[in-house]
């Protein structure tokens, strides 16, 4: 799906846990998430920690959309 959107001209970032799968399939901008059942907020942590993590990683994804890349790129996250 990522490739179809990108082919149609949308700038797209893929947020996923299984980064090697995303690379194999061919996404160009990738931001890692923390797990499969809860990509953006671990329910074993406080609501505040979950929010911080989600806000940060979505922010990285938005910055990825404004970053020119020349090859498949996995963007770094801090939390």
């Amino acid at each position: 799906m990522v490739k179809e959107f990108e082919k149609a001209g949308f700038t797209i970032v893929h947020m996923c846990n299984l980064v090697p799968v995303s690379l194999t399939v061919g996404a160009n901008r990738i931001v890692p998430t923390i797990s499969i059942p809860y990509p953006l907020g671990d329910p074993n942590t406080s609501k505040e920690e979950q929010w911080k993590l989600r806000y940060h990683r979505v922010g990285v994804a938005l910055d990825a959309l404004t970053t020119d890349v020349t090859e498949q790129t996995v963007f770094k996250v801090r939390i």
């Binding site: 490739k3 700038t11 160009n28 959309l65 404004t66 970053t67 890349v69 020349t70 498949q72």
Partner: peptide, 16 residues
Amino acid sequence: KELVPIAPAIKDLSKA
């Protein structure tokens, strides 16, 4: 491996 051309970066996200 079928790769698609990389879409250009969004110039001004604050308007996107």
